[in-house]
Design a protein around this nucleic acid. Sequence first.
RNA 1: GCUCGAGUGGUGGAAUUGGUAGACACGUUGGACUUAAAAUCCAAUGGACAUUAGUCCGUAUGGGUUCAAGUCCCAUCUCGAGUACCA
Length: 969
Amino acid sequence: MLEENFLGVISYFLYKYPMNYDFNAIEEKWQAYWAKNQTFKAENNSDKEKFYVLDMFPYPSGAGLHVGHPLGYIASDIYARYKRHKGFNVLHPQGYDSFGLPAEQYAIQTGQHPAVTTAENIKTYRRQLDQLGFSFDWSREVRTSDPSYYKWTQWIFIQLFNSWYNKQADKAEDIETLISVFEVDGNLKVEAVCDDAIEEFTAADWTSYSDPKKQEVLLKYRLTYLAESEVNWCPALGTVLANDEIVNGVSERGGHPVIRKKMTQWSMRISAYAQRLLDGLKKIDWPQPLKDSQTNWIGKSVGASVSFHVLSENKTGPHMIDVFTTRPDTIFGVSFMTLAPEHDLVEQITTKKQQAEVAAYIEATAKRSERDRMADVKTISGAFTGAYAEHPLTKEPIPIWIGDYVLAGYGTGAVMSVPCGDQRDYDFAKHFNIPIPNIFEGVDISEEAFADKEKAVIANSDFLDGLGQKEASKIAIQTLETLGQGEGKINYRLRDAVFSRQRYWGEPFPVYYNADAMPQMLDEKFLPLELPEVDKYLPTETGEPPLGNAKEWHWLQYGDEGKVVSEDEFNNSSPKGRLGGALELNTMPGWAGSSQYFNRYMDPTNENEIFSQDAINYWQDVDLYIGGSEHATGHLLYSRFWQKFMFDKGLVPKDEFAKKLINQGMITGTSAFIYKDIDSNKVYSKGLLSNNNVIPIHADVSLVNFSDELDVEAFKKWQPEYKNAEFVLEDGKYIVGREVEKMSKSKYNVVNPDAICEEYGADSLRLYEMFLGPLEQSKPWNTAGITGTHSFLKKLWRLYHSAAESSFSVSEEAPSKDALKTLHKTIKKVEDDIENFSFNTSVSTFMICVNELSSQKCISRAILEPLALLVSPYAPHIAEELWIKLGYTESISTVDFPKFEASYLVESNKEYPISFNGKMRFKLEMSLDLSKDEIEATVMAHEKTKEQLQGRTPKKVIIVPGKIVNIVG
RNA sequence: GCUCGAGUGGUGGAAUUGGUAGACACGUUGGACUUAAAAUCCAAUGGACAUUAGUCCGUAUGGGUUCAAGUCCCAUCUCGAGUACCA
C-alpha cells in the first residue's frame, strides 16, 4: 500500500519534471570521481607548460568556514581549471597553517592537546572544501604543525644561523667564509650587515679568542641571532605581548599591567634585505596598495648621520652622540639634542644635579607601553640631563635633553633638534623655553615650524646661506665628512623581526645551550626536533615559557647518536665526548611555517631535501597567488625575505616567489534587526519606527526570508525572553531592518556554506560568490540572490534536455547563424574576463548566452558542447555531467577550451544611435559599408531628424562610423 | 595627520580606448498554470510630468575641458582600508 503510493509519487514527478537537475547527486558523484581518479594530481614531469595557482592556506579554526572564506578559493579554482583547459600543467595545492594561538588557548582552558583539536578542525575544513568542488591536488597537502613539515622550517632556521650578509657581494654567504676572512684579516675589512656595536679586531686577536668568545662575535653577524630586545612583558600572564594585545597599558585579556622589559630573543636580520625588498617590488605584479604598504613599512629615508661630542667640563669628553637626520641642511638650526629615555648614554652623561629629575622621568616613561606613548602624542614631556654637546660646526655648547617623543628603536635613538624646521622639536622647545633660531629666509616661525623641503632657502647658516635644501644638504655632509663627524646615510624603518614566542603550539627551535650558555644548532640529521609533551600549556611558575613544563627537554648526544632526555638524565650522563644541554624553551612565531610553504608544495613528501632541484627548476615560482590583504606587512614580507635568502643560497631560481598577487575582498554579513520599544513590551516593524523610541536588536539572519520578513514564531522560540512581547506588524508582516557588518557569530549574521550547498548545490554557490561583484572589492552577502544563479543552472540543464521526450536530447544538425554568434560572443567575453579576473561579468555573460540560446530553441551539439566547456571552470559538476551525457567517457577537466572565431561576429548592419546635442533621440539601422557622407545623407533625410531639428540648420554633424551620430545645433 | 581606494535605481552590480547610463541578477507589482503551496512562464520596474507620442531631470556636490563626460581636469563632501611622534 505504502509502496504503491510511493511509486505513484515517483512516476508523477518523472512525468512532471523530466530529467530534473539533481545537483546533490551530480555533485556527490563527481567529487567522488575526482578523488578516486586523482583527476587534479599534478606531475613534476610534463611536456606541458607549467602554471602554479596558489591560495593562502587557511588556519583551521574551530568555527569552520563561512560563506566569506571560499571567495578567493573559488576564483583561484576557476583560474586553475581554465588553465588546464588551455593545456597547462597546473599546480593547485592546498594545506593548513595549523600552528597558532586559538588551539593553544583552547588547550589551556580544557587540557585538550592542540594537536587533537587541530586534527578535528582540519577534518571539518577538508569536508567543507571538498563539498565546494575545488580542484586541489590533495596529494601535496602540507600542515605546518606536522613534524615532517616543520623539520624543514627548522632546517631553514639553521641555514639562516649559518649565514651572514656580505654587503660587498650584496648577498647572504656561508658563515665559514666570514670565519676564513677573520683568520686572515680580522674584521677590519669586512662589510657586513651586523650589530651596530661591534668591536674591531685583527686576525691575531681572532685566533687568540676563546671558543665562546668567537661564537659570541659570530652571533653578531648571523642572519638569525640572539639579542636583547625590548618587549611588552606581562608578569601576570608570564608572556610577551604584541602591541595589539595591549589596551591602555594593561593586557587585553585579564587587564593585567604590562611593562617594557629587555629580554633575550631570537631575531631575524630582515634589515639586511631592506633595499632588495624595495627593489623587488618593481618587478612583481602585486596590487599597488599592498606595494605601498610594504614600501611604507620598510620606510627608507635618505639623510646623514652626525656625531656630536659630549662636553665634559667645557671640553670635548669621551662620549659621542650619533644622530640620524634627513635634514643635514638645517644643521645650523640645532638648538638642543634629545635622547630617548632608554638611550645608553643617559645614565653616564646626566649631571648630579639633574639625576633625580631624570631618574623620575625614566621611571614614568617605562611604565607606559610604546603603544600608549604613540597614542598620546599631544602631551609634551621630557627632562634636562644637565649635559651639553658641542655643535660640530659652530662649536657652541647645546643642551642635551631626554624626551619620549624620541623612539629608542628608530635610527640611533637620538635626534639633533631643529625647532624651526620640525614641528615636534618646535613644540618641545616652546614647552621648555628653549631658543628657536630661525635659519630660513623670509619665513615666519613665530607660530609653527617650517618643514617644507621644497621651498626652504637656508639663512643664518654660514657657508650654507642662500642655498636650497638639496644643495645645502650635500655641502653640509661634505663638510662633516672632512671633520670626521658625519656621513651620508640611508636609514630604514624596518626593524629586525623578533622570532621568539613564549608559546607551546609552534615550531621548537633546533637549538640547545652548551655549558658556556652559547646556542648550538642541532645537526640536520637529527631533525625534526619534535614538540615535547607537557602537563599544562601555561608558563612555568618561574616564568619560563610553556616548554619549561616538559619533563624531557635536554639534548644529549654522543657522536652520531642523539636524543631528547630529562635534565636528570643529562646531568647523570658521562661528560666524556658529550654534546648537548638545555633545549630552547621558546617556539617560533606564526609566520615561520608560512614563509616557504609555497616551495614545499613542489615536492612535499621529500624526506631528504626541502625540495628537489628538479622540482623547483620545473615549477620555478607561483604564477598566481590569491589571498587577503591583511598579510601585506606580515606573511608577504617575511616570505619575500626568506625567498631572497634561499635565492642567495642557490636553492631557488627566482628571488621573488609570486609573479602576480590578487587580494580578494571581504564578504561582509547583512545583519537583521528588530526594534524593541524602550518603555514597553512592544517590538515594531521597520516601517513603524517614526514616533517610537526603540533600540535595535540583532535577529538571526536565518529567521528572515528573502523579503526581509521575520518569522516571528521562530524568533520567539530562539529568544524565549520575547515570548510575551507584542510584535507590531505592518501589512500583516514583521519587516526587519538591515545593516552591513562584518560576519560574526555575535551579530547572528554568519551564513554557513554547508546549508547552501545542501539547498542549492556547490555550483550555484560558486557562481553566486563570483556574481556578487568584483573579486577585489568587499561586498555584503545576501542569501536571497542565490536563486538567480541557481535558476540559471536549471535553465542551462534544460537546454540539453527535451521536455517533450523527457530525456537528454541534442541535435546533430548544423547550428543556426544566431546560435553561432551567441556562442562566439560568449567565448570571447568569458576568455577576456577570466584573463582579467573579472569573474562577475562572465557569470552574467553565461546568463545572457543561455537566455539567448533558449529563445533561439538551440539544441545543436555544435553549440552545446563548447558551452559545457565554457561553464566548466565555474560550475564544474554540472559541466562534467553534461559532458558525459554528450557521450564522452573521460572528465571534461583537460579538454581544450573552445576556440573563438571572429568571423561569426561580423555584422553588415548597425543600429546607430542618433543624438542631438549629445542626447540620444532615436535609433536608425544602417549598413556598416556606408561612408560618412552616406550616413549623414541618410540621417538628415530621415523624418525624425527633421522633427528634432524643427527647421533649424545643424551647425555640425559628428559621425563616428560603427559607433554614433551626433547632430549639433 | 599621511598614503591608497571607492561613491551609479529599493539592493548587488554593468558600462573594455570619452560615444545609446542602469547590462545581468535580486527584490517589488500585476498576470498565467495549480484545490493550494512550491516550481515554472509572461509583463512592468531610476525619478517627475504626460500616459498616444513625448518632455524634463538623473552616476556624492560645485565648477571646467569636449560635438559628446559615470569615464578626463580642478575644488569640496562622505565612506572604507592601511599607517603613524620615523627625526
